[in-house]
Design a protein around this nucleic acid. Structure first.
Lengths: 188, 188
DNA sequence: CGCCGAGTTGAACTGAATCAAGAAACGTGG
DNA sequence: CCACGTTTCTTGATTCAGTTCAACTCGGCG
């Protein structure tokens, strides 16, 4: 729980009282490998904060899966569009390893919005974080070829490359596993 | 100004007093064709609400421009990453036609955050809107081929296709003008 | 030991980029 | 309002990066 406080208070001010209020509604959950935090077609009811484990968000398209995002400890994960709109999600959120998460539900967050001073600022922080992430990814896709996207990813998340099956990484940077394999030995 | 109120109050509650406060800091500006609301390398100090005209956000890459976004009347436009982080932007925001915008500066928005009840909710609304937009775009790029991206765009913004030079549209959907031309007469 | 998923490698294919040239549309000044 | 120059669009030929299909290897696990 301190991990979450540290993460949030780095981005915004949270008073003692507000934090008490928030603590009331934040819940903890152990996750087994391959468990789903959310399945396509369901409505996302939570935002998760990853304490431990690695997660993946993906869309099941015709005949293939498309990886949209990975989640690592000390970051949020959610089918956030579905969460915001409270409409069925078009993606799955799945644990690649066993892990542990904190989460807050949509309705509890609404409560926080109304009951605490920092509520909306909290919601704003979520939204801004999610936006900045997507925005960075967009720029990467628009301006860089696959190889550079891979190298950047490698720089930013060197551990990722070890822990995650290459086929997911390939999909995440928008290429096939074969193409990734070729990029890899082009670089050696 | 009513246009902005209508737009916002559709998404959140704004009290009479808060709106008065907001009105104090919202400014209006006439824009000439080809004027820049922001140039690459500068820090985005505003969020704009488009009253009239069409705008374009683009990145100047090595040897080519990449269109990231268009802006139409009754929507917000800004180099929002730069705005949030208050760091130099890597994109330009330019008017494709003459037009008119409302805007609020970063520091004025901070004032609104502290002075009004709905401040943070307002910031949250901005962030959520921007996020949902990017998210939709990401999904489109990951799951659809260029031709479908074009057709979807055509459905959603039929007027866009008439008003905006094809080369910008091509760039926006991630292809060359030549490829767009071929898509167009493949469909007739 | 044999199976299965993941990764690699090769060959053929394909959609889009690039290069190039000509046609059409646009706007700017006389 | 026309004429000229610039920008945009189109079309064709060629090239290329990445996909697809397919076969083979490797490593973990029942």
């Amino acid at each position: 729980m301190e991990a979450l406080y540290t993460f949030l208070s780095d981005k915004m001010f949270i008073s003692k009282e507000d934090w008490e209020e928030i603590k009331q509604v934040v819940q903890e959950q152990e996750i087994c490998k391959k468990d789903f935090l959310l399945q396509q077609g369901k409505i996302e009811k939570c935002i998760y904060f990853i304490l431990d484990g690695v997660f993946r968000i993906y869309i099941e398209n015709i005949d293939k899966e498309i990886t949209i995002d990975f989640g690592f400890p000390n970051s949020f994960i959610s089918s956030y569009s579905s969460f915001l709109k409270q409409t069925p999600s078009n993606c799955n959120v799945q644990a690649l390893t066993k892990g542990k998460v904190l989460y807050i539900t949509h309705s509890d967050l609404e409560t926080i919005y109304s009951k605490t001073k920092c509520g909306h600022a909290l919601g704003r922080t979520f939204a801004e974080e999610f936006f900045l992430y997507k925005s960075k990814r967009e720029e990467s896709f628009m301006t860089e070829p696959p190889q550079e996207r891979y190298l950047k990813l490698f720089e930013e998340q060197p551990n990722l490359i070890e822990k995650i099956p290459g086929k997911y990484i390939a999909s995440y940077i928008g290429i096939t596993p074969q193409a990734l394999s070729r990029i890899r030995n082009r670089i050696y």
